[in-house]
Nucleic acid binder design. Structure first.
Length: 469
RNA sequence: GCCGCGGUCGCCUAGCCUGGCAUGGCGCCGGCCUGCUAAGCCGGUGGGGGUCUCCCGCGCGGGUUCAAAUCCCGCCCGCGGCGCCA
């Protein structure tokens, strides 16, 4: 029998499963309901199977029956039984639909070392780099470091750094969210010229890094069917993030994770093919419906951006080790960019239903005086695999179970740009280009190589008006 | 978008016309045999449940029938041709 960790626990140890749900600060009544309907379903199925068996016997005996009156009798019996089966089937399907709905609503388990609590309970586990801290932000900085028992070296800034949004739109004049707001809505943007070279270089750098580690480069579909999307993510994400194409059963992806997880939907994977390591590149479309008024300025939280994404299909016994590998890969990328960061172990209440454990990488943002999320790395264990029916077959004994899936950002374009705008700004209004990106810019004649300067050739109509008045 | 052909167990395939327990091969797993390898032989290899001489399963969903892989309708996907667009 194919075993899904959560269904196994639901049947064998529902109390323990409740403990996991409680860790997420969710109502464990979920488990009682799921258990009840699963029992009901199993009972109904057994009852129905007995009737079907009866009917099959009748039907088989009809094949041989020659005597016309005997045939009539058997047909009448079979007909009656068939009618009863049909009504029982309808009941079963109703239960089955409800069962499916409840099972798909169950969150993943929670790994034992995940801190319990809401967002506040998430804890930094390591720091890297020497953040540039503005003198008025020192207390704020210490609250994000020393409070957790870390002593992090920093460089003090005398002058107040320019925020990434102002840097982009008013100093460099290489972005325009005002005009984008008029023509598309808030959280959209126009980017111009050197910023796009920067984005191109960031994506190329991440791709180069990941393929160098043996990850296979994938360009996935940017839209997926509803039935796939709802199996890759939880309902919450679906409501907050997913755009739908009108009059079609197609949804814009919020990350390459979705189509990469769907790549093996319904497939069998043999143990000797694992781990299967992928690096996807795609645009990401997000409604940001739950974001309220947070990060309205600039391009930190937007409806579309590009992302290079790590995705791994793994053996169950290897997923924990690979999860560490994914966050280490992301760290290597940000170390290369020389952006100071910390890694956070996300608390149980803030995990997202798919993940058993999640790390975020947050870079220091000198103008905000905060560490902000750049990368999210999740171990989904068999949660996505069960929903997408991605089976693992072990050669030894041909035992069947489910693969584990993991995902992590490598680079998210707009976020990484904001981090560079705040960390690499100079007094003269220029941005130093991180050294590691230079080789990806050298091949282009018109791309900037060392610095991004405030543009002389203004494209943005809003910036033009400001200049003339 | 239109017309034609197709979709069967991990892969390939028979069965469809003419309704009555899904055939064979490859691969894989287990065993036997063998000095080693190769070959050979036997058994297994979709899913589910209360694990049994049970049920369901032939792209998906409906219909006809005592009974559907098989007949009918709708849809999805693939291939070929035509049209349209880049």
């Amino acid at each position: 029998m194919l075993s899904w960790s959560i269904l196994e626990l639901l049947r064998e140890n529902p109390e323990l499963l409740k403990e996991h749900v409680k860790r997420r600060l969710m109502d464990p009544v979920l488990i009682d309901e799921a258990k009840k309907i699963d029992d009901e379903w199993r009972k109904a199925l057994t009852g129905l199977n007995k009737m079907r068996s009866q009917h099959n016997k009748l039907s088989r005996s009809l094949k041989e029956a020659r005597d016309p009156s005997e045939r009539q009798k058997l047909i009448r019996q079979a007909r009656e039984l068939a009618a009863r089966i049909k009504s029982e089937e309808e009941k079963l399907y109703a239960i089955e639909g409800k069962r499916e709905e409840l099972l798909l609503a169950l969150p993943n388990l929670v790994e034992d070392d995940v801190p319990i609590g809401d967002e506040e309970a998430s804890i930094p586990i390591r720091f890297w780099g020497k953040p540039k801290v503005w003198k008025d932000h020192i207390d704020l900085f210490l609250e994000q470091t020393e409070k957790y028992g870390f002593s992090v070296e920093y460089d003090m800034l005398e002058d107040k750094p320019v925020g990434h949004a102002d840097m982009l739109e008013h100093v460099l004049k290489l972005g325009d969210t005002l005009k984008a707001g008029e023509v598309a809505g808030s959280r959209f943007f126009y980017l111009f010229q050197d910023i796009i070279w920067l984005e191109t270089a960031l994506l190329a750098y991440a791709i180069d890094k990941m393929t160098g580690k043996g990850y296979a480069l994938v360009m996935p579909p940017y839209m997926l069917r509803g039935n796939i999307v709802k199996r890759v993510i939880d309902l919450e994400t679906f409501k907050d993030a997913i755009y739908k194409i009108e009059n079609e059963d197609l949804y814009l992806i919020a990350t390459a994770e979705h189509p990469l997880a769907a790549l093996y939907a319904g497939e069998e994977i043999y143990d000797d093919e694992l781990p299967l390591k992928l690096v996807g590149i795609s645009p990401c479309f997000r409604k940001e419906a739950g974001a309220g008024n947070r990060d309205l300025k600039g391009i930190f939280r937007v409806h579309q951006f590009h992302k290079v994404e790590q995705f791994v299909y793994s053996l169950p016994e290897e997923s924990r080790r690979i999860h560490e590998e994914l966050i280490k890969n992301a760290e290597e990328i940000f170390q290369g960019l020389e952006l100071p960061y910390r890694v956070i172990k996300i608390a149980s209440g803030d995990l997202g239903a798919c993940a058993i454990k999640k790390y975020d990488l947050e870079t220091w943002m000198p103008a905000q005086g905060k560490f902000r999320e750049m990368v999210s790395a999740s171990n989904c264990t068999d949660w996505q695999a069960y929903r997408l029916k991605m089976r693992l077959i072990r050669r030894k004994g041909m035992k069947r179970s489910y693969v584990h899936t993991l995902n992590s950002t490598a680079i998210a374009s707009t976020r990484a740009i904001t981090a560079i705008l705040e960390n690499y700004q100079n007094k003269d209004g220029t941005i130093t280009i991180p050294r590691v990106l230079k080789k990806y810019l050298e091949v282009y004649d018109t791309a900037p190589k060392d610095y991004i300067h405030p543009t002389r050739k203004i494209v943005s109509p809003k910036a033009k008006k400001k200049k003339t008045c």
